[in-house]
């Protein structure tokens, strides 16, 4: 299990990387944290002619709070975000999600943006970005574009990123102050990819009914899934038992017909999706902040 031959460079500035990508995008693979990419190389499931290591592009090493979102640059490590007191305080859901990625040795090296770019449908961060209606920033020699999560993930390990584009930033929107959130995944072992994972962000209205719901799943289809049908069930309710039953029932449909593998059948994944839905909804709703004047 040794990687095949390739040529390598590690530019210091973003423009250099973009020039290379512009001219040879098809033959180049980007190396950031490498925690998913290097295993593919070692197994010779990937054999790019060129590898551009972006780890030395210091201008991509940041996470910053913007008014509407947390912006994370392409080489910020998952652990740096996880450990940040600022992020712990302002985006606890993101921290909770990151803690479930692999093991600390993986997160020490793995990047937040790399996980988004890899677009593994069983991974946590793409699902979070989908859940929150987040965005990514793609840059190329010819400019930049902001892509909505729903327009970014395009099936198993693929995205709508175009040749010549580099994913330089990911933007996780802030949660409303009163929103309650929950993230639960069912994995066989600590650190494994989940068989099914679910997350919910519920925002109560003044009358303490559910004003908005963001529900997303991973490990259930070729891409992370935002479950509008489940969300619709919740809006305007106080998440009574009947509503939870209906939501849990609707959640079964998020699991794709082909989601059978060595660990789980489709039917079992549906059961998990349904049960995790109940659990995240209960927990998220319990965590909401009841607004003043609410009963």
């Amino acid at each position: 299990m040794k990687p095949p031959r390739f040529r390598y460079c590690s530019p210091r500035i973003l423009d250099e990387a973009l020039v290379l990508l512009d001219q040879y995008g098809e033959e180049i693979k980007i190396l950031a944290g490498g925690q998913s990419f290097v295993p593919l190389l070692n197994m010779r499931l990937a054999a790019p002619a060129y590898i551009v290591d972006i780890n030395h592009i210091s201008e991509l090493h940041y996470f910053e709070t913007e008014p509407d979102y947390l912006a994370i640059g392409a080489i910020a490590r998952q652990r740096q975000v996880e450990r940040s007191v600022l992020v712990q305080e302002k985006h606890p859901l993101l921290v909770e999600v990151i803690k479930h990625i692999g093991h600390m040795q993986i997160r020490n090296r793995g990047t937040v943006v790399g996980s988004i770019a890899h677009a593994d449908p069983a991974a946590e961060l793409p699902a979070l970005l989908t859940c929150l209606d987040g965005e990514v920033l793609a840059q190329s020699m010819h400019g930049e574009r902001v892509i909505k999560a729903k327009d970014f993930f395009a099936g198993y390990l693929s995205t709508t990123l175009e040749a010549g584009e580099l994913l330089t930033e990911v933007r996780f929107p802030w949660l409303a102050r009163q929103a309650g959130w929950s993230f639960i995944e069912f994995a066989r072992r600590a650190g494994d990819y989940a068989l099914v994972g679910a997350m919910a962000v519920l925002t109560p209205a003044l009358d303490d009914t559910c004003m908005s719901a963001n529900i997303a799943y991973f490990g259930v289809a070729g891409s992370p899934i935002r479950a509008r049908a489940v969300e619709q069930v919740l809006i305007g309710t106080q998440l009574d038992a009947h509503t939870l039953d209906a939501a849990a029932g609707a959640a079964r449909d998020v699991v794709g017909e082909d989601m059978q593998d060595v660990h789980a059948t489709v039917e079992y994944r549906r059961e998990l999706a349904s049960e995790l839905t109940r659990r995240v909804l209960k927990q998220a709703w319990a965590r909401r902040e009841q607004l003043e004047g609410a009963q």
């Binding site: 040794k2 925690q35 290097v38 295993p39 652990r79 093991h103 040795q105 993986i106 020490n108 090296r109």
Partner: peptide
């Protein structure tokens, strides 16, 4: 395992534990 799972190759890289099999 050369796949980043078993952890036998863990070293400290600038003080952080990492998998030496997943780096060049």
């Amino acid at each position: 395992c050369e796949q980043g799972v078993c952890g036998c190759c863990t070293v400290l890289f600038n003080g952080e534990a990492v998998r030496a099999c997943l780096m060049f």
